[in-house]
């Protein structure tokens, strides 16, 4: 009897999950599609966002995310190589891994604070796209480093032994050989970082600001799609309609990215990542 209740409960949880899923996504999609036209994506911002479209915001979002990924890929490759290099020394590896793990568990708002202090004030970049990008890069660093590290660990032993036998310098073995072997991981990490960046809001509130004009350089202020949704929903009466449309755009984007990420992971058999962090 207990068993029957248990099975019933677990099936119920299954259906409840789907109910919640469709409640949320269905609401966003259907309310967002109301009066939706593609011109929304291409028009400029008007009347605090009640009218007009989100073209400048989409551009700002793309710039911030692209630059963040660009920076993040570079530094995460370097971090992963660093950890791999010290992998023989257990103590150092533990410290490094704990560092990265704590960084990944840090709340996004704290990143916003840090971004504000380091990039806006200390480096004097002010509220700008570049401040936002660099903050984001720091946020997605742990995710990418972990994946690339997994890649480095899975480099076949022969290669490591061969490099040792040939007495190759570390620069050669890492940058000329191994890097070509971990391309899949780098790609996968990039897409995961992409998904995370698009969803990020709190870290950008105090770094990239609320600007709405078409950005002409990285030092201009701009807002991302997620900040726009927040602003419309909280601060603009009558802004709900456009908030929904923007939310629809955002989840479609994110949905496509997750699909691509999952496909990459499956195709290249990267297996079930220990996806413990966001």
């Amino acid at each position: 009897m207990k068993n029957k209740i248990f099975i019933l409960t677990s099936w119920l949880s299954f259906f409840t999950f789907f109910a919640i899923f469709f409640a949320v996504t269905g609401n966003i999609i259907f309310t967002g599609l109301d009066n939706f036209s593609f011109s929304f994506l291409f028009n400029t911002f008007n009347n605090s966002g009640r009218d007009g479209g989100i073209s400048t915001i989409i551009i700002s979002t793309l710039i911030i995310v692209a630059f963040a990924l660009f920076v993040s890929v570079i530094i995460s490759i370097l971090s992963a190589i660093c950890i791999d290099y010290f992998s023989k020394n257990i103590r150092i590896t533990k410290i490094l891994k704990l560092s990265i793990d704590t960084l990944s568990a840090t709340p996004s708002i704290v990143f916003g604070l840090i971004g504000n202090i380091i990039f806006c004030e200390f480096l004097g970049l002010g509220y700008s796209l570049i401040s936002g990008s660099l903050t984001l890069a720091l946020m997605i660093l742990p995710i990418q480093t972990r994946i690339i590290l997994i890649g480095l660990n899975s480099v076949p032993k022969d290669i490591r032994l061969g490099a040792y036998a040939l007495n190759l310098k570390p620069f050669t073995s890492y940058f000329r050989i191994k890097i070509h072997l971990i391309k899949k991981q780098i790609l996968s990490g990039t897409f995961m970082g992409l998904g995370r960046s698009l969803a990020e809001t709190a870290a950008l509130l105090f770094t990239s600001g609320y600007g709405v004009k078409m950005p002409s350089s990285l030092l201009d202020s701009g807002r991302t799609l997620s900040i726009h949704i927040y602003d419309l929903a909280m601060n603009v009466p009558g802004g709900n309609e456009n908030a929904y449309k923007s939310a629809l755009t955002l989840i479609l984007l994110v949905f496509i990215i997750s699909l691509i990420t999952a496909t990459i992971q499956r195709r290249f058999n990267l297996g079930q990542q220990e996806f413990v962090w966001n």
Binding site: F17, F21, T25, A199, T201, I229
Partner: peptide
């Protein structure tokens, strides 16, 4: 199906959840 939908659910941005909470 469960896996895919859970992945999608995972990637929904927090503002969207907040928007849904605020309006619904």
């Amino acid at each position: 199906a469960l896996n895919i939908f859970m992945d999608i659910f995972l990637s929904i941005p927090s503002v969207v959840f907040g928007l849904w909470g605020l309006v619904v």
